[in-house]
Design a binder for these strands. Structure first.
Length: 460
RNA sequence: GCGAUCGUAGCUCAGUUGGUUAGAGCGCCGGUUUGUGGUACCGGAGGUCGCGGGUUCGAACCCCGUCGAUCGCCCCA
């Protein structure tokens, strides 16, 4: 920003330009999600990025922070109030109703993309951020909750994320939740004056939230506060037990979190979050943002949008937060390049440089041939010819570096490996000899004085 | 909305209690050297010290304002 000319517009606060290793990590999260979602046969949907404002205000609840102060709302030219989606669920519920997706019920849906919330940015939190999202709509059985959570658990495992546990709670059905809420209000009202300022406000707006206050003034009362279990109807209790036993059967580890309440009004029964364990590397990587994946059952939501009673469960996960938890030292996915960490996926197989200026055109030709043979190639034509090779070797972006050019009346491809994992030169050699454009003679291996193997093909 | 810290070259940062033409490493460009496991040598370009005002003989440095960034509170993915 410092010396950007004043004419250049600045990026919007809280937006990100993601590049390099971070972009690779982001893509890896999305690709893994796509793979896992197919294993569970969740169907891909594409959703609009904006909706009528009432879709969110009615579904999420007027009093929530999201609706009351975090939405990007604006009037379009027709005077309609529109809002950039702050979450996926409300829009998916609207789509379910307006498109008659009931005919497919129960439907398992998956999507991902950008969401917008007007908040102060900090670590792991942005104004435009990105989520993965999975929903099962039209299924009221606890098995749906179990399957949804099993998918989340598998996703985290396939991403190689550890030190994170599933925190699980039930909010009961509507009656249980209301009774519990009334009891909490009565309990905390007694000691209102001794609560933190924030919690005094929460008492009116969102009393359940007092339970996970970090303020010591609140915590001493939280311990003895009424618990949801005392208010659970038989049916609600049975539902929760089916979910937990199903998770055990599926091998999904979980921990009961009695004070876990989700921020949005529509949750019923199951509520859950995947949270880093205290003191873990994951917790350190995330800063003060703890939840990486959260969701629950939202049986009342459809009705609030004027649809038929429909039960549903879903979760959303922050792509940026998941990406921060990927292990950059994991040898299976990353390679260490000096101080810069780059994903292997970000490295081309081969960097090709012409040995002299007059060899530039044949080199480009060879690069194209190699790409048709499914070998990723980057070329370097800038800078001094003699120094290109050296530069590519020392600072390049490929696993191997090759120099190509005239050698007498023939050409020569001189290839050296830069990374510790040697490519399959024999296979490469076979592939090279199969093409029709260049005639590759057999590969020979030369040892340099330092003992490094250089692979050389004579080409005519 | 509140609080803390920070803005010096493309990047990461030095810059001594305020004192001549503001420095380094990396990167970039050029020259020399060399075909090679991440470290060859020499040279060069590049900075309104975020911006505006104030204090001072003199400000990158002190003061005020402003914009931006980072981290935290609230809340959330």
């Amino acid at each position: 920003m410092s010396k950007t000319p004043s004419k250049t517009p600045q990026a919007i606060r809280g937006t990100q330009d993601i590049f390099g290793a971070e972009a690779e990590a982001f893509a890896f999260v999305v690709e893994t999600f796509e793979r896992v979602r197919k294993l569970y046969r969740f169907r891909r949907v594409e959703m609009p990025v904006f909706e009528r404002t009432e879709v969110f205000s009615r579904a999420i609840g007027e009093t929530t922070d999201v609706v009351s102060k975090e939405m990007y709302s604006f009037e379009d030219r027709g005077g309609e109030s529109l809002t950039l989606r702050p979450e996926f669920t409300a829009g998916m519920a609207r789509a379910y109703i307006t498109n008659g997706w009931q005919q497919h019920a129960p439907v398992k849906l998956a999507t991902h993309g950008p969401l917008f919330r007007y908040e102060r940015p900090q670590k792991g939190r942005y104004r435009q951020f990105h989520q993965l999202d999975a929903e099962i709509i039209g299924a009221g059985e606890p098995q749906a909750d179990v399957e949804l959570l099993a998918m989340a658990d598998q996703l985290l495992r396939e991403l190689g994320i550890s030190g994170v546990t599933l925190q699980l709670n039930t909010l009961g059905d509507a009656d249980s939740r209301d009774a519990w809420r009334a009891a909490l209000v009565a309990y905390f009202r007694e000691v209102r004056g001794e609560l933190s300022e924030d919690s005094q406000e929460r008492l009116d707006k969102n009393p359940l939230r007092i339970l996970d206050s970090k303020d010591a003034r609140d915590r001493r009362f939280v311990a003895d506060a009424p618990r949801i279990d005392q208010f659970l109807s038989d049916e609600a209790l049975r539902f929760f037990e089916s979910v937990t036993s199903g998770l055990d059967a599926a091998g999904v580890k979980w921990a009961r979190a009695e004070s876990l309440v989700r921020g949005l009004d529509y949750y019923r029964h199951t509520a859950f979050e995947f949270v880093p364990d205290e003191g873990s590397a994951a917790a350190a990587a995330l800063g003060s943002q703890s939840t990486i994946l959260g969701g629950g059952r939202y049986d009342g939501l459809m009705e609030s949008l004027g649809g038929p009673p429909t039960s549903a469960v879903g979760w959303a996960a922050g792509i940026e937060r998941l990406a921060m938890l990927l292990d950059p030292t994991s040898p299976s996915r990353f390679v260490d390049m000096r101080q810069n960490r780059a994903f292997k996926a970000d490295l081309a197989a081969l960097e090709l440089v012409p040995s002299a200026r007059e060899d530039e055109r044949v080199t480009a030709q060879l690069a194209n041939l190699l790409r048709r043979l499914d070998i990723s190639v980057v070329t370097t034509f800038s800078g001094k010819p003699q120094r290109r090779f050296e530069k590519a070797r020392d600072h390049g972006h490929a696993r191997s570096v090759g120099s190509f050019g005239r050698r007498g009346d023939k050409f020569e491809l001189y290839l050296v490996n830069r990374t510790l994992d040697d490519p399959d030169f024999e296979a490469l050699s076979n592939r090279l000899q199969q093409n029709g454009e260049f005639k590759f003679e057999a590969c020979s291996v030369r040892r340099t004085h330092s003992g490094v193997a250089a692979h050389v093909w004579t080409v005519s």
